[in-house]
Structures are given as structure tokens and as C-alpha cells.
Design a protein around this nucleic acid. Structure first.
Lengths: 163, 163
DNA sequence: TTCTTAGTTCGGTACTAAACGAACTTAAAA
DNA sequence: TTTTAAGTTCGTTTAGTACCGAACTAAGAA
């Protein structure tokens, strides 16, 4: 973790580092099966001090074509990762990060875990020998996931009641 | 969740369903950036009643070329998702699922969460205005993740002490 | 009405990755 | 020693994807 050196950093230095984080976000998104540009847009909207960008500003900032921007923005919007504001009587859209409630993050996590748990249960239901090594292994995992899923709900309640 | 209908299922029916689960695993792995075949091999080793396959059996069962099998198996091994047994004085390898301890699953999860948390902290450290909407949003997320990470350790201890 | 702004859609290119077959390798069996 | 079994490596084909530029569209401005 880098130390908080912001006070001894020139503005240019800060921007350089921010751009590095944008690239990093590009790679993170690539790993998750999105395109590089898609991730860069997410990075741009997340790390820069300017937190609202128009279509043209995104095109210019990331040096991409309008078609690429259009495509990537639609993907991000479909996934509810970004949103945009409009102003009455203007066609311009102001894109920004979708700042969801942090409880949504937990629910998301919860659902993904539940999904893999269900897959394993389906596998178990089809095992001829419920005591086979894999069956034992899978039941072990399923049991643990169920424990954590239950506790998740409690923790969520605890966290949101105290804050 | 499907009902436990195994007792009213013919053996062929069961195998048909198992093969469907193999395909599903293929798609799950694809989503995570692996190849389709890689996922099918994982599915094969996980869902079928036969839980150990030789190279040739995998080739035959999935109808893939030997080169494809060789490549995919090396990837899975490198990621510690499968392993194989050998028998003294025989070249054949018997592949099977790597049945890791379920605590490894939690640790994995823990590390991934920590990583994204660190990314957000890096972004926060570079914000000119620590009260900007995105900064507030990110701090909110970071705080929540930290809460859950701490509790994770407690839950892990609780789970493994009682079982 | 015509022009400009703010995008979208379409078609093509270039790159990447999956999978294959054939040739090669290495070790045990005969 | 030759053959067979068990894979590996290499080069190619094929399929898919990312991105671009150019042409198009739709709505507000002049």
C-alpha cells in the first residue's frame, strides 16, 4: 500500500499516477471478460478528479473512436456500472460512475455464492454413490458456504444498524 | 433447485443430466476467462461417478484432440485445480479433481476482496478532493469491505472449531 | 430550412485464441 | 532392439473480438 504522499506530489505527478490506475482498471476488467476500453472508461470515471464526462470528453481523453465509445458505454450501462445525467433541452449526456448502495455489493456477492452452491447441489443430486470422494468433498464445501451465507445476513444487519 | 428424483431416474437419464452439468461447467469457466474445454474437463472430473480419468479417457469422453487435452490439463494443473496419481512402473496418469481444504476457499475469497479494496485505497489516495462524490462512495465501500474482512477471520475460526 | 451537435450503425481489418492433426519424444514392453 | 503406449510440441486453420473510420440519424440552433 502506498503511503499518503499527496502533499509532496506535483499535480502532474498525481495525474500520471491516476492514469496508471486507469490502465490497471483496464486490465482488471479484461480479466473479467470485458474489453480493455470498457475498463478504461470505468477507471476514468472512478479515479479522476473530474467525475462527470461527456461522450466527447471520454473520446478525447482515452483517444478512442466514437463508435468504440458508444459500444463500450452501452455495455457499461446495460450492466448498471455507469449512469448518466441529462439536462433539459440539451442532447449532451454526462456520464458518471453508478454509485450503488454498498449493501447491493453484499447482495451481489451473496447471490454469486448461492449460485455456485446450487451447482454443487445439482452435482450431488446426481451422484450414484453419495459417499464417493468428490461427493464428500462437495458436501463439505456446500456446508461451509451455507454457513457463511447465513452469517452474511447477520453481518449485513449488524453493519447497517451501527452505521 | 431440482427435487431429489434420483430413485425414479434411469441410469441413462442420470448420465444425460450429468453431461448437461459438464456443459454448464464449461460455460462457467468460459465466463471466468478459461477455455470451454478446460471447463468441460473440470466438469467431467467433478460430476461423473467415475472420478479418475486417464489422458486417453478424457480425450475419448470429450471428443477432443490429444493436443487440446494436453494443453488444457497443463493449465488446470498450473492453477492447482486438478492433480494426478501415478503408479510405479507405469506412464499412465490418473487425473482427478484437486480436493482442497475448504478453508482455502475462504482464504482465496479473502485475498480477492483485499485486492479490490487496495485498488480503491490507491484511488482515494490520489483524490484532490477527499469529499468528492466518488471519494465518499469509495470510502463507504472500503469501510464495509474492511468490516467484512475482519469478520471473515472470526467466522472462519468459528466454523472450523465446531466441525 | 439548413447547419451543427451528439451520438449510432455498419462494414472492414487486424489481432487473438481455441482447437486440430501430424510429427516428434520418451519410457516401458516384448 | 524394435514396438507400443502415453503424451508433448509445432504449425496451421478457424472463429471470435476489438477497434476503427465513414456514413448515417435525430434533435436542437440559427
Amino acid at each position: 500500500m502506498p503511503p499518503k504522499t499527496i502533499f509532496m506530489m506535483t499535480p502532474e505527478e498525481r495525474i500520471t499516477r491516476q492514469k496508471a490506475l486507469i490502465e490497471q482498471m483496464g486490465r482488471i476488467f479484461e480479466k473479467q471478460g470485458f474489453g480493455l476500453i470498457t475498463g478504461r472508461i470505468m477507471g476514468l470515471l472512478m479515479v479522476m478528479d473530474k467525475e462527470e464526462y461527456t461522450f466527447d470528453e471520454i473520446v478525447e481523453e482515452l483517444k478512442i473512436s466514437k463508435s468504440t465509445a458508444s459500444h463500450a458505454l452501452r455495455i457499461l450501462e446495460a450492466r448498471d456500472l455507469i449512469e448518466y445525467k441529462t439536462q433539459a433541452g440539451a442532447r449532451k449526456r454526462f456520464f458518471q460512475l453508478r454509485r450503488f448502495d454498498s449493501s447491493a455489493l453484499i447482495d451481489d456477492h451473496h447471490n454469486k455464492l448461492k449460485e455456485s452452491c446450487n451447482y454443487m447441489k445439482a452435482v450431488l443430486d446426481l451422484k450414484a454413490d453419495p459417499e464417493s470422494p468428490n461427493a464428500l468433498f462437495l458436501r463439505d464445501i456446500v456446508q461451509m458456504i451455507n454457513f457463511f451465507l447465513d452469517k452474511f445476513d447477520e453481518l449485513k444487519a449488524e453493519y447497517f444498524s451501527r452505521s
